[in-house]
Amino acid sequence: MTELADRADRAATLYEAVGGTEGLRRLSNTFYEAVLADLLLAPVFADFTPTHVEHVTVWLAEIFAGPADFTADLGGHQALLRAHLGLSITEEQRLRWMELMAAAVDKELPDDELLRRRVLEYFDWGTRIARDVSAASVGEDLGDPGPTPRWGWDGLA
């Protein structure tokens, strides 16, 4: 079966396909449990709180075409980017982040190759932006990054 034919049997959005907010919450919890135990990544999350998992869950829901609550309640795209300022994320840390996220995706998301690939493509794209933004100083003007991006079955919408 072709990828296009496969999609006819899939949920309309990645948000629905991952199991909605609950699926994203499980993914985030599994991922951050690994991150906080990781010697390379734990220092990046020195100020981590349980609220962080919920904010990431809400962000991912919006990215994958679910409720736009991150924009409505948590400051949108600009706030997410500002949260990464001054973290000085290295490429080694970004790649380790991707390894741990891939493991969480394998554990928590449905066994659907296209779904997992699209979700990981988003994370690869997003972690590159986070790494680049993290080199800027806290308080630096990022300009207007535009609205919160959306990621679907064809990638960036």
Rank of each mutant, 00 (worst) to 15 (best):
E108F: 04
W97H: 15
D141C: 07
L156F: 04
T71K: 01
M101T: 08
S137Q: 09
S28I: 00
P110I: 04
L27K: 13
G143L: 01
R26H: 07
L24A: 05
F123R: 14
A37E: 15
F123W: 14
L24H: 06
D106L: 10
T90I: 00
T148H: 01
I129N: 10
T148C: 01
R131P: 05
F123H: 14
S28P: 03
S88N: 12
L109S: 08
R26A: 10
P43Y: 07
A12G: 02
E140C: 08
L14A: 06
L41C: 03
H84I: 00
E91A: 12
E54W: 05
V138L: 10
D112P: 04
I63F: 13
A136G: 03
L95R: 15
P147C: 01
G139N: 10
L85S: 11
E54V: 06
G75L: 00
G146F: 02
G126M: 11
D132V: 01
P110Q: 05
R10H: 07
D112V: 00
D111H: 09
M1L: 14
A11S: 03
A157E: 12
A42V: 02
V53Y: 13
L14M: 03
H52L: 05
F123V: 09
D132Q: 04
L4E: 08
A130L: 06
A83G: 14
V133N: 08
D69M: 02
L95C: 15
S88D: 13
E62L: 02
A157D: 10
L95W: 12
G19Y: 09
S28Y: 07
V119N: 10
V105T: 06
A102E: 14
Y32Q: 06
S88V: 07
R7A: 00
W153E: 00
W59Y: 12
E3Q: 11
T51W: 02
D144I: 00
F64P: 07
V133C: 03
A61F: 08
D6V: 03
M101S: 11
R94N: 13
L114V: 06
V105P: 08
H52Y: 13
I63V: 14
T13A: 03
L120I: 03
A83M: 09
L156E: 02
A135S: 07
A37P: 14
T49E: 12
H52N: 14
G75V: 00
R116S: 02
D112K: 04
L114M: 10
L41P: 15
G23Y: 13
G146W: 01
D69H: 06
T49K: 15
L95G: 15
H55Y: 10
R118H: 07
D154R: 09
H52A: 13
T127G: 12
G146M: 00
T57C: 07
D124S: 15
R26K: 05
A37V: 01
L27N: 08
A8Y: 11
G126A: 14
L24M: 06
D112L: 02
L41H: 07
I63D: 12
F70G: 08
L40R: 11
Q78V: 02
A103D: 12
F64I: 01
D73M: 01
M98N: 15
R128S: 12
L142Q: 10
T148K: 00
E3W: 13
E22I: 04
M98Y: 11
A83I: 02
V18R: 09
S88K: 10
F123L: 15
E16D: 12
D47F: 09
R25N: 09
